[in-house]
Deep mutational scan, measured.
Amino acid sequence: DEVEIEDFQYDEDSETYFYPCPCGDNFSITKEDLENGEDVATCPSCSLIIKVIYD
């Protein structure tokens, strides 16, 4: 799936974006990952991944 970065929750302390996963955990991707060109957020509890859409 693809999710807009605006739909993520941002945690300023950890500089990490979170998005709810269907399994009950959260996908996460850090601001640093995005700045380095990464665009895939992973869920630590299951095998799902999502593509992050940002400009």
Score class of each variant (00 low, 15 high):
residue 9 Q to D: 10
residue 43 C to G: 00
residue 5 I to C: 04
residue 37 G to C: 03
residue 28 S to T: 13
residue 47 S to D: 13
residue 14 S to K: 13
residue 3 V to Y: 09
residue 43 C to E: 00
residue 41 A to P: 07
residue 46 C to K: 00
residue 3 V to C: 03
residue 9 Q to F: 08
residue 27 F to H: 01
residue 55 D to G: 10
residue 10 Y to M: 15
residue 45 S to N: 14
residue 43 C to Q: 00
residue 19 Y to F: 12
residue 5 I to M: 07
residue 7 D to V: 08
residue 37 G to I: 10
residue 53 I to G: 10
residue 26 N to V: 06
residue 28 S to L: 08
residue 52 V to R: 01
residue 15 E to F: 14
residue 42 T to S: 09
residue 28 S to Q: 15
residue 18 F to W: 11
residue 50 I to A: 07
residue 52 V to M: 11
residue 31 K to D: 02
residue 50 I to R: 15
residue 17 Y to P: 00
residue 48 L to N: 14
residue 23 C to I: 00
residue 52 V to Q: 01
residue 42 T to F: 14
residue 36 N to Y: 03
residue 11 D to Q: 15
residue 34 L to F: 05
residue 4 E to R: 04
residue 46 C to A: 00
residue 36 N to Q: 15
residue 16 T to S: 14
residue 17 Y to M: 03
residue 13 D to R: 12
residue 9 Q to H: 03
residue 10 Y to T: 05
residue 3 V to E: 01
residue 11 D to R: 10
residue 51 K to V: 05
residue 9 Q to S: 05
residue 27 F to Y: 08
residue 32 E to G: 09
residue 24 G to Q: 10
residue 7 D to Q: 14
residue 16 T to R: 14
residue 21 C to A: 01
residue 8 F to G: 01
residue 50 I to H: 09
residue 8 F to K: 00
residue 47 S to I: 03
residue 54 Y to S: 08
residue 23 C to N: 11
residue 29 I to G: 04
residue 40 V to S: 13
residue 29 I to P: 05
residue 16 T to M: 02
residue 33 D to V: 11
residue 15 E to S: 09
residue 38 E to F: 07
residue 24 G to H: 15
residue 35 E to A: 04
residue 1 D to V: 15
residue 52 V to E: 00
residue 19 Y to Q: 09
residue 3 V to W: 01
residue 8 F to A: 01
residue 43 C to P: 00
residue 55 D to N: 15
residue 36 N to I: 02
residue 42 T to A: 15
residue 27 F to N: 15
residue 18 F to I: 02
residue 25 D to S: 10
residue 35 E to N: 13
residue 11 D to A: 09
residue 15 E to Q: 15
residue 4 E to D: 12
residue 25 D to I: 03
residue 50 I to E: 07
residue 47 S to M: 06
residue 25 D to W: 04
residue 20 P to W: 01
residue 26 N to F: 12
residue 53 I to Y: 06
residue 3 V to F: 12
residue 1 D to T: 05
residue 9 Q to Y: 04
residue 53 I to N: 01
residue 55 D to S: 08
residue 47 S to L: 11
residue 51 K to D: 08
residue 35 E to L: 10
residue 29 I to Y: 08
residue 5 I to V: 02
residue 3 V to D: 00
residue 10 Y to D: 01
residue 4 E to F: 11
residue 15 E to P: 01
residue 18 F to P: 00
residue 17 Y to N: 09
residue 55 D to T: 05
residue 7 D to R: 07
residue 24 G to T: 12
residue 23 C to W: 02
residue 50 I to P: 01
residue 21 C to T: 00
residue 37 G to Y: 08
residue 48 L to V: 09
residue 15 E to C: 15
residue 7 D to H: 14
residue 3 V to I: 13
residue 49 I to W: 10
residue 33 D to M: 14
residue 51 K to I: 10
residue 21 C to N: 01
residue 38 E to W: 07
residue 38 E to M: 03
residue 8 F to N: 00
residue 33 D to W: 09
residue 9 Q to I: 11
residue 40 V to I: 02
residue 39 D to A: 10
residue 23 C to K: 06
residue 37 G to V: 11
residue 22 P to Q: 10
residue 53 I to H: 11
residue 7 D to T: 05
residue 41 A to C: 13
residue 26 N to P: 09
residue 55 D to C: 10
residue 24 G to P: 01
residue 7 D to E: 13
residue 1 D to G: 15
residue 50 I to V: 08
residue 32 E to A: 12
residue 45 S to F: 03
residue 35 E to D: 02
residue 41 A to E: 03
residue 25 D to T: 09
residue 55 D to E: 15
residue 14 S to M: 10
residue 54 Y to D: 07
residue 32 E to N: 01
residue 13 D to H: 06
residue 29 I to L: 08
residue 4 E to V: 07
residue 45 S to Q: 08
residue 19 Y to S: 09
residue 4 E to P: 03
residue 9 Q to N: 06
residue 14 S to N: 10
residue 53 I to D: 04
residue 47 S to T: 12
residue 37 G to Q: 06
residue 47 S to F: 11
residue 9 Q to K: 06
residue 9 Q to T: 07
residue 7 D to Y: 10
residue 32 E to I: 02
residue 34 L to I: 04
residue 55 D to F: 05
residue 53 I to S: 07
residue 43 C to F: 00
residue 43 C to V: 00
residue 20 P to I: 08
residue 16 T to Q: 14
residue 37 G to A: 14
residue 35 E to S: 14
residue 44 P to M: 12
residue 2 E to W: 15
residue 13 D to L: 05
residue 17 Y to H: 05
residue 33 D to C: 11
residue 23 C to Y: 07
residue 23 C to M: 02
residue 36 N to E: 14
residue 7 D to M: 14
residue 22 P to H: 04
residue 13 D to M: 07
residue 50 I to F: 06
residue 23 C to E: 05
residue 24 G to Y: 09
residue 52 V to S: 05
residue 40 V to C: 11
residue 11 D to E: 09
residue 34 L to E: 14
residue 51 K to H: 13
residue 11 D to H: 03
residue 28 S to H: 06
residue 23 C to L: 01
residue 51 K to R: 10
residue 3 V to N: 01
residue 24 G to D: 14
residue 48 L to D: 05
residue 52 V to T: 05
residue 37 G to W: 04
residue 31 K to I: 02
residue 3 V to Q: 12
residue 20 P to L: 12
residue 1 D to K: 15
residue 10 Y to W: 10
residue 42 T to G: 12
residue 34 L to N: 06
residue 5 I to Q: 02
residue 31 K to P: 05
residue 29 I to N: 06
residue 40 V to T: 04
residue 52 V to G: 06
residue 16 T to L: 13
residue 26 N to W: 04
residue 29 I to Q: 04
residue 5 I to A: 02
residue 38 E to T: 09
residue 21 C to D: 02
residue 43 C to D: 00
residue 47 S to K: 12
residue 29 I to K: 11
residue 46 C to R: 00
residue 38 E to R: 08
residue 7 D to C: 05
residue 36 N to A: 14
residue 44 P to D: 01
residue 34 L to G: 09
residue 54 Y to E: 06
residue 14 S to C: 14
residue 36 N to G: 13
residue 10 Y to K: 12
residue 2 E to R: 05
residue 19 Y to K: 11
residue 44 P to E: 06
residue 22 P to S: 12
residue 17 Y to L: 02
residue 24 G to I: 02
residue 14 S to Q: 15
residue 26 N to I: 05
residue 11 D to P: 00
residue 9 Q to G: 06
residue 46 C to E: 04
residue 22 P to V: 10
residue 41 A to Q: 09
residue 28 S to M: 15
residue 54 Y to M: 04
residue 23 C to D: 11
residue 22 P to N: 09
residue 49 I to T: 08
residue 48 L to F: 04
residue 48 L to G: 13
residue 47 S to Y: 14
residue 14 S to H: 15
residue 43 C to Y: 00
residue 42 T to M: 02
residue 15 E to I: 12
residue 36 N to L: 10
residue 33 D to L: 08
residue 1 D to A: 08
residue 44 P to S: 10
residue 34 L to T: 09
residue 47 S to G: 13
residue 14 S to Y: 05
residue 31 K to H: 01
residue 43 C to W: 00
residue 38 E to H: 07
residue 47 S to C: 14
residue 27 F to Q: 14
residue 51 K to G: 07
residue 27 F to W: 10
residue 32 E to W: 04
residue 37 G to L: 05
residue 50 I to W: 02
residue 25 D to R: 09
residue 15 E to W: 03
residue 34 L to P: 03
residue 23 C to H: 02
residue 14 S to F: 05
residue 53 I to C: 04
residue 55 D to H: 02
residue 19 Y to V: 09
residue 45 S to V: 12
residue 7 D to G: 05
residue 6 E to I: 13
residue 44 P to I: 03
residue 18 F to H: 12
residue 27 F to K: 04
residue 6 E to L: 07
residue 15 E to H: 09
residue 26 N to Y: 04
residue 37 G to S: 13
residue 2 E to H: 15
residue 24 G to V: 04
residue 2 E to F: 15
residue 35 E to R: 06
residue 44 P to Q: 13
residue 34 L to C: 06
residue 29 I to W: 09
residue 14 S to L: 13
residue 39 D to F: 04
residue 31 K to G: 04
residue 22 P to I: 09
residue 45 S to R: 07
residue 38 E to G: 08
residue 45 S to L: 03
residue 50 I to L: 11
residue 18 F to V: 11
residue 2 E to G: 05
residue 14 S to E: 14
residue 51 K to A: 04
residue 23 C to F: 01
residue 34 L to D: 01
residue 40 V to Q: 15
residue 33 D to G: 11
residue 40 V to H: 01
residue 41 A to D: 01
residue 37 G to H: 06
residue 17 Y to I: 01
residue 49 I to Y: 01
residue 18 F to T: 08
residue 1 D to M: 10
residue 7 D to N: 11
residue 45 S to W: 02
